[in-house]
Design a protein around this nucleic acid. Structure first.
Lengths: 231, 231
DNA sequence: GAGAATTATTGTACTTTTTACAATATATTT
DNA sequence: AAATATATTGTAAAAAGTACAATAATTCTC
């Protein structure tokens, strides 16, 4: 028994962290939220909001908590992506990191740096600065996964405001998929799914014909068992 | 610095394991490989082949090594599934487990119990015994993932022998997707992808009309950039 | 060796989905 | 009133998906 203890001890000396890839969307296109690191290692560097997690806390909960502590974001859509575990990925020791992606409605949140995060800011996915650890790899993996998810699940509505135009729905798809669609065909397709509905409202204060505002019908999507293919 | 060390130590005391969901396929349908545990906890129980991983080894490599050590299987197709991290999932302490799935050609391998595995055996996916830890949850997640993957990627050929009949291709799809297809339409579809080719050979020693034997054309699939949709 | 048994193989008509393509509508600004 | 800017809409052709059943090639049995 004493011997078994000793054997076990050799395994119980690694750490686990969570890294979040937080996607947002505005008129500029797809964005990612980064923090400016205020502690070692890589102090001062822009990085994915992530942190070591406490051994007493469930994994899912840890992911939410890390995000909230560093950025103030709470109650957002999150999904586990992948675990990254190269031996030398962290200078302080063996740290496995479990990556999550989060989708938020930019208009609803005001991210603010907290805890050891010195700053927090949105970056266009095409203008990401140099990132520490294997964060670049994690980010690219997250983008790939988002692309795949968006073809079969109604995730874009997690990124769009409550009321949105069909042009916005098209633009967000084009931003994420890096591919253009025909306006008429896109509208026909997205409306034929039945998961978005007219609200009767119109855009205001625009210098051109105002677009109709639509809204996502989550219960309809659920009812349709939506794993069916958006585009 | 001393202080920082102390803070860090509170994180570096968890363990990480790998659990493999190994799928195989034969005339009976889809199978999963389980080992009979020869060490604590849950000694004697059938379980997914998994083990704690050494802090000095890369994650991907660990997954392969654990599988090889317990079952003798080597050089198989593996893919990371998910990480499971409930606080109480392991009685010895905080253990995060990273689940992988592996696809093997049953005819090419003779699994044999090694290391602390007392036995190893294939189980039909519909006849899985009670499993320890959260292995049941991991297995179900793996089946779900396999279902999704198989619709868009040519993974079934990792499970089929080198030469196979179209009937086998159809049967494996039906087993995994739990759904039946029309014979004529299925054949048209699978042949139209261009990723399998006739070999000129025929089935032997069957008590009915012998079927043509086909073979997977991996380079053609790669050339077609196969993310395109199998069925 | 003739007939039974068993599984393999193949085509066509119909329906649905996808694709390509451009003119008109409604607001603001000058 | 004209210019500017974006929103909105339909149709025909092509492609893909679906439903459906008769014939072919082997072994087995008598």
């Amino acid at each position: 028994m004493k011997n078994q203890h000793k054997i076990l001890k050799q395994y119980f000396n690694v750490a686990v962290s969570v890294d979040n890839v937080v996607f947002g969307f505005d008129a500029d296109g797809l964005k990612v939220l980064l923090i400016s690191r205020g502690s070692e290692p890589f102090t001062g560097s822009w990085a994915l909001p992530g942190d070591l997690i406490s051994p007493e806390m469930d994994l899912e909960y840890s992911a939410e908590k890390v995000l909230k502590q560093l950025t103030g974001l709470d109650q957002v859509y999150m999904e586990q992506i992948q675990t990254f575990g190269r031996v030398d990925r962290h200078p302080f020791g063996r740290v496995f990191t479990i990556a999550y992606f989060a989708l938020i409605k930019v208009e609803n949140y005001q991210p603010h740096a907290n805890s050891w995060a010195k700053d927090v800011a949105w970056f266009k996915v095409s203008e990401i600065p140099k990132l520490p650890f294997d964060h670049r790899e994690i980010l690219e993996y997250a983008r790939k996964l988002l692309k795949n998810r968006i073809r079969t699940q109604p995730l874009v509505f997690e990124l769009l405001p409550k009321y949105f135009t069909l042009t916005e729905v098209q633009f967000i798809h084009e931003s994420i998929l890096e591919e253009e669609f025909d306006v008429r065909n896109f509208r026909k397709k997205i409306l034929s799914t039945g998961i978005i509905e007219e609200t009767g409202r119109l855009q205001k204060n625009v210098t051109h014909r105002p677009a109709k505002l639509y809204r996502y019908n989550a219960s309809k999507a659920k009812q349709l068992g939506f794993e069916g293919g958006m585009l």
